[in-house]
């Protein structure tokens, strides 16, 4: 029975990893921008949920109606006015990547600094839906279960969008070859901006969900950016279901390793798995070819 609970815990955490990786996959896999300030959208979503709840008793889920559109617009503006000028300026892909990393690294400090000045450095948390739910005999917290369900629904929706719609086809085409996409009449700058903005919006939603069960502070963003990056690389750049699978795999490995070997080894297991994937399947676990 306890093993089942461990597996369940791994699955729930893994779903969250998958969720945060989905948005990065849109930004890095489709819009082709390595955004180091990606996690700041999560921080923003978390703070929004926190303040809405503490100051006005607004339901954290309802706060998404504010934070998600704001994150979408904010990321769109970042892409449009900070990052796409770099595309025009850069002589080649390497220079572009170096430039975007520098710019988004700067952005990370700007957002983190603003949050620090505005809200101070302390850890924040609130209690919401910390209700035990009986799931096949095991007890899980409702807030964690909800984040997991959201992750799965979003991943499946994105998968469906990319596989079965014209827009999704265009997004995949951009991910594969932006020049070729232009040649079949895809408005690459517009759709890239859209994908980038959607990635940020997903991260803000993830921030709301995560803030329901994990405490956070102004410097939390980069932690999630790195986690998301690991999952994206494991799952395959541009692969939405792969991303979810890799997140689940990581969560499961962590939970099982912690239970069967030692909880202190979670991080080691994390990186061992990551290195293994890099060595065996550098293109990602769930990439074709």
């Amino acid at each position: 029975m306890i093993l089942f609970e461990v597996v369940l815990s791994g699955v729930l955490v893994g779903g969250m990893y998958g969720l945060i990786a989905l948005g990065l996959n849109l930004q890095y896999g489709i819009a082709r921008m390595m955004n180091l300030a990606y996690g700041e959208a999560l921080m923003g979503g978390a703070y929004t949920a926190f303040w809405f709840f503490m100051l006005w008793r607004i339901d954290p889920l309802a706060s998404m109606l504010f934070s998600v559109p704001v994150a979408f617009c904010g990321n769109w503006l970042i892409y449009r006015y900070l990052l796409s000028p770099l595309i025009r300026r850069a002589a080649n892909q390497e220079i572009l990547e170096a430039d975007t990393i520098l710019v988004t690294f700067g952005l990370l400090f700007v957002f983190q600094g603003l949050a620090l000045v505005q809200w101070g450095g302390e850890y924040r948390g609130y209690t919401y839906l910390a209700v035990p739910i009986d799931l096949l005999g095991a007890t899980v917290a409702l807030n964690r279960l909800m984040a997991f369900v959201a992750a799965v629904v979003l991943a499946l929706a994105l998968y469906w969008l990319l596989r079965s719609t014209r827009l999704g086809g265009a997004l995949r085409a951009i991910a594969i070859d932006p020049v070729a996409a232009q040649l079949v009449a895809v408005d690459v700058p517009r759709l890239s901006a859209l994908a980038f903005a959607a990635g940020g919006a997903i991260m803000a939603a993830a921030g709301t969900l995560v803030s329901m069960f994990l405490s956070f502070n102004a410097s939390i963003g980069i932690v999630y950016t790195l986690k998301a990056l690991i999952v994206v690389i494991m799952g395959g750049v541009g692969r939405m279901l792969g991303c979810l699978m890799a997140g689940l795999l990581l969560g499961l490995a962590e939970a099982l390793g912690a239970y069967l070997v030692d909880p202190g080894l979670t991080l080691a297991i994390n990186f061992a798995l990551f290195l293994l994937v890099l060595l065996v399947r550098p293109q990602g676990l769930f990439s074709r070819g």
């Binding site: 070859d177 020049v179 040649l183 079949v184 895809v186």
Partner: peptide, 24 residues
């Protein structure tokens, strides 16, 4: 334009490539 080096969407199927061609 049929570009130099063809620039197909390598991971897509034949049908998917053709459908992308009709994106306009």
């Amino acid at each position: 334009l049929v570009p130099e080096g063809r620039r197909l969407f390598g991971e897509m199927t034949v049908i998917e490539n053709l459908c992308m061609g009709a994106y306009a």
